[in-house]
Structure formats: structure tokens, C-alpha cells
Design a binder for these strands. Structure first.
Lengths: 103, 103
DNA sequence: TTTATATATCAAGATATGTTGATGTATTAG
DNA sequence: CTAATACATCAACATATCTTGATATATAAA
């Protein structure tokens, strides 16, 4: 039950659904790209990413000073059905906007 | 998006997940049966039932002075997958306890 | 028609969650 | 080593949600 509710609460927020859909469509993105694509401050993005990760949807790969987030793989059937439902739900999908100042 | 979030928020609560699972296992129950099976006050049960109904999971059939709740039928694939996941999630399932004083 | 039962809804208080700005940590460029 | 960049976390405030007790409505029994 705990895991189920953690999964559900992680997607019980408009911003997180949009971020999850964004990552799902863009394969792998770093925090500053999400930040500039959504025009939201970094602490907000970071918090939501943590919740989505704890909800079992995302994985992180830290390379250099960046944290690259992508859909966890393999993803169980239930979370897959959620991603599918989200992609059918006309969620706002901003353009990918590279926000990092270095490389 | 609105519908998706309404669906998700309706199951983002331990009590509602338990009630939903309870109704799913018992086919059709009235409010006072849920009230006495869960040992919760009526206004609380009533509120949660409304939210689950608005979330697209339940339907009501009013007969006499009772309101009988059951799983909405037909149920779309996404909500079906949620019910399935709940039944796999070791949710507390109280005994059906008839709570109505009349008949 | 008066009363009891079944259910719904509302207001108030308690609790949980989201947003922001500040600060902490890690990595890398200079 | 110092400074800049990328990211995480925390405290404070704002907002949303849940619980309870009171009240409203509807049905049916007496």
C-alpha cells in the first residue's frame, strides 16, 4: 500500500505530470534544461524530480556536474500504463530549451 | 489533463484506496455497510465516495433510502489497471459488516 | 404527520503539500 | 586555490486536503 500511494502521490501534481511527460518524450535531460524549458526555478524542479524518482518513474545518471534524468528502465507494467495515459491526456509539452551555461 | 489529475487525486488517499478495494471485492454496498465495516463516521465515508465517483471509479444506485455503490461499468482500461494494481498491493480489506438498522 | 433511518453537505480546525529564496555540496575551469 | 556552474535541501509561508461535528434532505415506518 505504501509503495502504491507513493507512486500515485508522485503524479498527483500538474507540474510533475508535465515534467514526467517531458522526460518521456525527450529521453534524457538535465535539470537546467528542464529549468529553462519550463521557466521554473531550480529548487522547484529539483524537488519534483526527487519525488518522481522516489515514485519509481525516473532514474538519475550523474555525469560531471550534471544530473541526467530519464525514465527508469525497465519500467513495470503499471507505471507504463500511467505514462501511456499521460501521453493521451493532452499535457502541455514545452520545447526543449538548453539552459546549461557550460559544457 | 484535468480528468487525469482528478482520477489520480481520487485514489491519492489510503482510506479511499481501501474503500475502492472493498467495493471492488464486494460488488455492491451501501454507505452504512461501509461505515460499520470500516468503523468510520458517515460524513467521512460519504465524502470519500463522492470523490471516488467523481474520479470515475464508482456509480451509485439509489433504491429506497439507500445509496448502493459499485464499480462503474464499463470501466476504461486505465482505471481497470489501477484496480488491478490496488488488488496486488496488500490493501487492508475489512469484513463486510451490515450496518443498516432497517430493511 | 411525526419520527427514525440513510445519506449528503458544510464550516472549522488540523495536517499535508507546493513554492520560493537562501544556503549547502560537488565538480570543474582558470 | 578560487570562482563559477549544476544540483540538492531547508525553512517559511501559502494553499490544498482530510477529519469531525452539525445540519440539511429524502424516504419510509408508525
Amino acid at each position: 500500500m505504501e509503495i502504491f500511494l507513493k507512486t500515485i502521490s508522485s503524479i498527483n501534481d500538474e507540474t510533475r505530470v508535465e515534467i514526467l511527460n517531458f522526460i518521456n518524450k525527450n529521453d534524457e535531460v538535465c535539470v537546467c534544461d528542464i529549468e529553462s524549458s519550463f521557466n521554473m526555478i531550480q529548487s522547484r524542479i529539483s524537488r519534483h524530480l526527487k519525488i518522481l524518482k522516489d515514485g519509481g518513474f525516473l532514474k538519475v545518471d550523474r555525469r560531471g556536474r550534471w544530473a541526467f534524468y530519464s525514465i527508469k528502465s525497465p519500467l513495470d507494467e503499471f507505471r507504463q500504463s500511467i505514462l501511456k495515459e499521460i501521453s493521451f491526456s493532452e499535457v502541455k509539452l514545452p520545447e526543449l530549451n538548453k539552459g546549461c551555461k557550460s559544457e
